[in-house]
Amino acid sequence: MDRVPILKIGDVLLVSIQIDLQDQTVLALQEDLADRIVKTGARGVIIDITAVDIVDSFIGRMFATIASMSRLMDAETVVVGMRPAVAITLVELGLSLGGVRTALDLEKGMRVLGAPLPAVRPGTS
């Protein structure tokens, strides 16, 4: 089974998913991330899914789980780079990923974590 590498940039952990995810890989990633957040004291987690061509309910649930888990350890999670087709399918599937922050790309995701401007997102201002 492949494992998804976790990179550390400053106090942000970056997970860039480049493989076709199977359920075991997803579960392993959740565990690895929890370990790394604790070990590094990271303030944020970015999951880059630019290369992911499907997100089903299992993978979607992973995002939500990682988000709530990392929040408990005082780290914010941002999912970046979701493709339009994936987003449309997730909505159709009935998954809204409540509680998971999202950004268009890696750079914008870093900005979300780096300087949380209260006025950037509506509903929070």
């Binding site: 941002v78 999912v79 970046v80 979701m82 339009p84 994936v86 987003a87 449309i88 997730l90 909505v91 159709e92 809204s96 990923l97 922050r101 999202t102 950004a103 268009l104 914008k108 995701g109």
Partner: peptide, 11 residues
């Protein structure tokens, strides 16, 4: 649905 999909993409 359009708005929800856009949100999932971070917009």
């Amino acid at each position: 649905k359009t708005v929800m999909a856009a949100r999932l993409m971070g917009t």
